[in-house]
């Protein structure tokens, strides 16, 4: 009896649980699913053959391809549109690698806004034309590129205590921020 009761309980629980919300998707794709233009640009810019992982991403509206690879000991994420045209490059950097003046501006914002904070993930984002982005990688040139910083940080105020993702411009001024929603931890806690 107990066993039958349990099975029924499980079935009921599962039944009322299935209401799929599916908008954000990021999945691994094979190289041959990526537009030729993207592969060619990547080959020209990064030259040497290297291990590249390809992903398809969508937030429900915009769809992009993303290549992830290591270059000069940094993790690069290169975003392409669906036609294979490069859009931007994000490079994962350490706190001390941010330009000193920019870092000061970012820190002063955090000090003013939060009683406690810590930076967890910093990416410098370069946006521009394919040729200019290529020059950044193979010639280290910054000409015509827009620079911004995407920073994930923990910030505590008197009333709020959250993980944030802030976008800062080339000089370190905050452009916008959003709360990073942490996924449920019920399966890790109980």
């Amino acid at each position: 009896m107990i066993r039958r009761g349990l099975i029924i309980t499980f079935l009921l629980l599962i039944n009322f649980g299935f209401s799929q919300e599916k908008n954000e998707v990021e999945k691994r794709v094979k190289k041959n699913e990526v537009p030729e233009t993207a592969l060619e640009w990547l080959k020209d810019a990064y030259e040497k053959k290297r291990r590249t992982k390809w992903y398809f991403q969508t937030d429900g509206e915009e769809e992009v391809f993303e290549a992830k690879l290591k270059h000069k000991r940094h993790l690069h994420s290169i975003e392409f549109n669906m036609r294979g045209v490069v859009q931007n490059i994000e490079v994962l950097i350490k706190e001390k690698e941010i330009d000193e003046d920019v870092y000061e501006v970012i820190l002063s914002y955090l000090k003013e806004t939060y009683t406690k904070y810590s930076l967890s993930k910093i990416q410098i984002q370069y946006t521009g034309q394919p040729d200019d982005l290529e020059d950044l990688i193979d010639e280290n040139e910054l000409e015509n590129l827009k620079i911004s910083y995407e920073i994930e940080y923990y910030g505590k105020t008197e009333t709020k205590d959250e993980l944030w993702e802030g976008l800062f411009d080339h000089s370190g001024r905050l452009l916008n921020k959003r709360i990073v929603k942490i996924k449920n931890t019920d399966n890790l806690d109980y």
Partner: peptide
């Protein structure tokens, strides 16, 4: 307890 996604780097609904 460790949790590793099997499709891509982010765990998205349906994965």
């Amino acid at each position: 307890k460790g949790q590793i996604p099997l499709q891509g780097r982010e765990l998205d609904p349906g994965e």
